[in-house]
Design a protein around this nucleic acid. Sequence first.
DNA 1: TTGTAAGCGTTATCAG
DNA 2: CTGATAACGCTTACAA
Lengths: 348, 348
Amino acid sequence: MRDVALRAGVSVKTVSRVFNDDPHVLPETRDRVSDALAQLNYTPNMLARTFRDGRSPVIGVAVPSISDPFFASIVGGVEQVASRHDMSVVVTSLGGEGAHEEGRVESLLKRQLGALVMAPTADDQGYLARWAGKLPLVFVDRPPRGLDADCFVEDDEGGARAATAHLVGRGHRRIAFIGNSTSASTTASRLVGYRAALAEAGLPADEELVQLSSLTSGGALRAVQRLEALEAAPTALFSSDAETTMALVPALVGRRLAITAFGDFPMAAMLSPALTVVDQDPASLGRLAAERAVARLDGPLESPAQHVTLPVRLLERSSCRSPQDLVELFPWTVPDGGGRVVWESPRP
Amino acid sequence: MRDVALRAGVSVKTVSRVFNDDPHVLPETRDRVSDALAQLNYTPNMLARTFRDGRSPVIGVAVPSISDPFFASIVGGVEQVASRHDMSVVVTSLGGEGAHEEGRVESLLKRQLGALVMAPTADDQGYLARWAGKLPLVFVDRPPRGLDADCFVEDDEGGARAATAHLVGRGHRRIAFIGNSTSASTTASRLVGYRAALAEAGLPADEELVQLSSLTSGGALRAVQRLEALEAAPTALFSSDAETTMALVPALVGRRLAITAFGDFPMAAMLSPALTVVDQDPASLGRLAAERAVARLDGPLESPAQHVTLPVRLLERSSCRSPQDLVELFPWTVPDGGGRVVWESPRP
DNA sequence: TTGTAAGCGTTATCAG
DNA sequence: CTGATAACGCTTACAA
């Protein structure tokens, strides 16, 4: 920039003005500077600009796993809004366990983010209190614990209750709940909804029917086997999240069960039978969170936190027959661990 | 930081030293500073540090769409490596069309990225020449055009040839190619592979059988209908990418065709029939690209560009019967546009 | 309309 | 071992 100023015979401040389209520059001067700019093909150093005003035009996004399609959609939504506001998006995966959350998030925060959007994995976000006044913190999918902040979640309890009631309406009386650990608050809320539906139908809440399995396909299979071994085995399943459902599907091959799941996912409609699911809208979640963050950035940081619950919809497909009418699930598929390698690229 | 120095009765430089574990500090001084640090709960300003050394510890990732599971996995791979090296990841979606590429990428670059990993969508990356000397540029999935740079792609041609040959081996003689626009170099290479397989089998290259459809499910359906209307309709399809395949699946409901696809995707093994696919490894692609970027960051920027082609594998599942033995595809599914809404959360 | 000076938070340099 | 000073590139406040 100094070089440009020198070449154009002006001060650096004038160069800065030209760059920022400050109207108080003589057209003639402007041209001279523009020429110099072009000749040296000067690129402004955003880092310096950013440093100067102390906050970077960056929205941080922290999610359990960036490669999970659900969270990838949230990130996509955030990115869409961010780019409209000339902000970038930095992402961080937290891992499922919550152990890394604080470290990962703190290291993001140290970079003077403009705002943070996060789906927490740890049990407590109290450590964020010291940041709360400095930048907008917006939670998505899961509310914060030990901290009050803006939050966009979906109607976990209502959706789970509707999905369970749907199975009850089909005549099922033994309905299992399968989900990952209740450390995720979404799972806890869905469990509440599930139990509410059973209670409303006057069905007993049998704890044996609640399986908090790990998310591997092996774990899902074991959970299903435990359920089958029960004296009064369930005729239907409610799966608490898309990740669990995807792990569960291979375990259900050839079995006879009805199933309803929280969370749609690619190809759920093309399975055989097509899965009846509670449909969420992760992209909107991301967009709304980002918009809230941007609004806080412009306006006052301190107004009371908003807690928004987005509606979800129960999408009926064909996976919920009545107990008498149950059919084999996924009858055509071959549960061979994903296929047989019949060719491979030659290695160099 | 000045406050800390004041409180500890030392200079800011000493505070800095304590912070950076500089050994040349008396233990006693160190303790005093540490106390002050804790009491004021000082947080180092990474932005300033970063500004000072002129380059930010950030890897930029530019992909067509962050919410596409394939690219989300690439981002996940990059992020994994980045976090091992204490770097963050900023992501940007380019959109399928290439029109926004230059703008989006330039605005990333202006932020003094440490390195850039990208899957280009435009026809030409010549505009990046001025950046090539300043930071590592690493391409993934698709090679750059109009620029030489490090590049990690998968064996598109070989995989497509194997997948097509697999269909030929099952007795198919009329095999269609469906993909998105050949502006993506991956599609172009796969088309080459497809043609090579036909040529090797002595089959004619009928241009009517090559359908470059748009990626919507309606577009896929029209492409299939055009193929069916052909005088000599195909008995088998080769789908050129996962996005196309996912759009295609609903269009194939109840039809009789064999199908092979480039690119695995969640639940492909659970469709009925399970899809035979060319399996890629996007997470590795991302990891390798990031590792290369980091290596260039440490070592010399200027060594010759490396072009690496990763092997792919053909995963046989059940979607490739012989023409005589063809069955209805996805017979159980209900092509009702994804389901019927039977319940919705009450709106506030 | 243009220029000067100061400062954002950190670290390298070099002197003490 | 510790400290003063300058510098990174840019912009704001103020002066000319």
